[in-house]
Design a protein around this nucleic acid. Structure first.
Length: 573
DNA sequence: GCCGTTTTCGGCCCGACTGTTTTCAGTCG
């Protein structure tokens, strides 16, 4: 079993936690955390990079030492440095750090004085009143620990963006109801349009002595006020979502928006640029000495540190700072660039609406074309189409295309890739289609090698055009299956195939990192909703979010092309 | 431990809130 990037990152983070508890050099601790972040977010596996003879110290935040540790982990599956630390500091102490309100100092004190080395120990000690007697702890801290422990197991998961949107709308409306509030904007990962959000960061502009904080904590849905100050408050909603509200004056709006949008890594990089120029950058502005020299808009802040405006979706410190400095930021795709949807179902399989309803809804969105991609016969639960029914659908589409003059329906299918890499329907019917979208719907547990071969073999069929939801993951529900994404991208490029960016908010597959990898490797993608109803066509915007996070431009997405050019690309011959 | 159009050594982002304190440490974002 090859070692996963996430396992390497976990090991580094654990090492960082334990070293921090031991009181190691804080910058050394940070170095492990930053190394972990690089490895976790990297779209290619460290194992593959090493096998290809690449130099890991080329990666950001990876130096000689971490590169050697990664190699050891990949070669042996073990990290001696971590084992050594674990021999004198219990590994489970890093679990205690996951509890909100417990950091390295408190965990160390709990371990040294009360021998607390696990969540269970902590629970017993808190409930027996031992913790409040410790120096630096008190009754409130003990109570806080008990409450957080109760919450600990249930609230680990991040919230899908589309779910967060439903929480945001009424809350923003509530805040706007406060007369003293001018602007309300949701910042954080929500504004960066990340596929999931951990909490909500909301920024409002108002005078410092306004009543907005009372208004905020008085919101109906607030279950618990965690902290409350003049400029910052934190609450938990009944839904379990944590919301941070920050209040800043109008003159700081841009600086605050930039700061609270993050990401943390992006902010640190921007601040470092500021320091180089002799400025201090914080949420109130850009300062030279005590004088604020920028802060009203985000553009101002970027300009002062020598950069053009960077779109929120790119702010992950994944190269956008360097690209901005060279004036080489991508001109990101927008929803208006999309000319059609390339993955839609009808009630012929598991969709809810008819061919005609789907086509008319797509036309209403201003699309020039839409493709119909019902399931193929292997997906029996979805009443997938066999050759005969697909022939019938092809005829129906031909007929409908004659009737409709404002949109073209493309004849397609969501074709199952069988376990041996063959396709679910005969070439005799596939050749009648405009193109195919092919997908894996079972056999998720094949080995990485077999799964990769399955996909590559499928691509050998000249009727294979687009690989749908390439990783098979369902956010918060199902991990991606094992396969070699890089090899799939490379083979797709050679064969004239494409990968889908499935826009459904449960999938968003390819994810952002993979979008960027495809782009860097010269492969275009198809952005498609996998709509199962007329309403689902609206989900395209989530795909746009993910594509923008993956640095994609109009030219990287095949359904930004007019129909004639699209058809040329989809004709493999 | 990483990193370098000042540096291969000496730096490493910045502020708010809480609780336990009599002036600040710890934690978080």
């Amino acid at each position: 079993m090859p070692v996963h990037n996430s396992e390497i990152a976990d090991a580094f983070e654990k090492l960082a936690d334990l070293l921090e508890i031991e009181g190691a050099n804080p910058f050394r601790v940070r170095a492990y955390r930053e190394g972990a972040r690089t490895v976790r977010g990297y779209p290619r596996s460290m194992a593959d990079l090493l096998q290809g003879g690449e130099d890991l110290t080329e990666l950001p935040a990876i130096g000689k030492d971490l590169a050697a540790k990664i190699k050891t982990l990949v070669d042996t599956g073990r990290l001696p440095a971590l084992e050594k630390v674990e021999s004198h500091t219990p590994a489970a102490l890093s679990d205690l750090m996951r509890i909100q309100g417990l950091g390295p100092e408190r965990v160390k004190a709990l371990y040294k004085k009360l021998k607390i080395a696990s969540i269970g120990d902590l629970n017993r000690a808190a409930r027996s009143g031992k913790i409040q007697k410790l120096d630096g702890f008190g009754k409130k801290t003990e109570q806080m620990i008990i409450e957080r422990l109760e919450r600990f197991s249930s609230t680990e998961q991040r919230t899908k963006l589309i779910v967060a949107e439903d929480l945001v709308a009424p809350l923003v409306a509530h805040l706007k109801n406060c007369d003293e509030v001018k602007d309300v904007v949701v910042a954080g990962s929500y504004r960066r349009r990340k596929e999931t959000v951990g909490d909500l960061d909301i920024l409002v502009t108002a005078r410092k002595d306004s009543t907005v904080m009372d208004h905020f904590t008085g919101y109906d849905e607030v279950k618990e006020v965690v902290s409350k100050g003049n400029t910052r408050s934190t609450v938990h909603l009944r839904s379990g979502m944590q919301v941070d509200l920050r209040v800043v004056p109008q003159a700081s709006y841009g600086a605050a928006l930039h700061y609270f949008t993050g990401s943390k890594a992006h902010n640190i990089a921007v601040r470092k640029l500021g320091v180089k120029k002799g400025y201090k950058v914080n949420e109130y502005g850009v300062f030279r000495g005590n004088k604020r020299i920028a802060g009203k808009t985000e553009e101002e802040v970027y300009k002062k540190v020598g950069l053009p405006y960077i779109p929120a979706e790119l702010r992950e410190d994944r190269g956008e700072i360097e690209a901005a400095a060279k004036r080489r930021l991508p001109d990101l795709i927008t929803l208006e660039d999309i000319r059609g949807d390339l993955h839609c179902h009808t009630n012929a399989s598991d969709g809810h609406h008819s061919l005609k309803q789907m086509a008319e809804a797509a036309a209403q969105r201003g699309y020039a074309y839409v493709s119909i991609n019902d399931h193929s016969k292997h997906v029996t639960v979805a009443h997938g189409l066999d050759e005969k029914r697909l022939f019938a659908q092809i005829k129906a589409i031909d007929k409908l295309n004659e009737e409709l003059d404002d949109i073209v329906i493309l004849k397609s299918i969501e074709l199952d890739i069988l376990e041996d890499g063959s396709l679910d329907l005969k070439d005799s019917v596939l050749k009648e289609l405009d193109f195919t979208v092919c997908a894996i719907h079972y056999g998720f547990n094949l080995s990485r090698e077999k799964q990769t071969q399955r996909i590559l073999r499928a691509m050998d069929n000249r009727h294979f055009n687009i690989l749908a939801h390439p990783s098979g993951r369902l956010i918060n529900q199902r991990e991606p299956y094992e396969f070699d994404l890089e090899k799939v991208i490379e083979t797709a490029r050679q064969h004239g195939c494409f990968l889908e960016v499935n826009a459904h908010p449960d999938r968003l597959d390819l994810n952002d990192d993979a979008c960027k990898l495809a782009k860097d490797m010269g492969l275009k993608v198809a952005l498609a909703t996998d709509a199962h109803s007329v309403a689902n066509l609206e989900l395209m915007r989530f795909g746009i979010n993910q594509a923008r996070r993956g640095w994609l431009e109009r030219g990287d997405v095949i359904n930004c092309l007019p129909l004639r050019k699209l058809k040329q690309l989809l004709n493999r011959k």
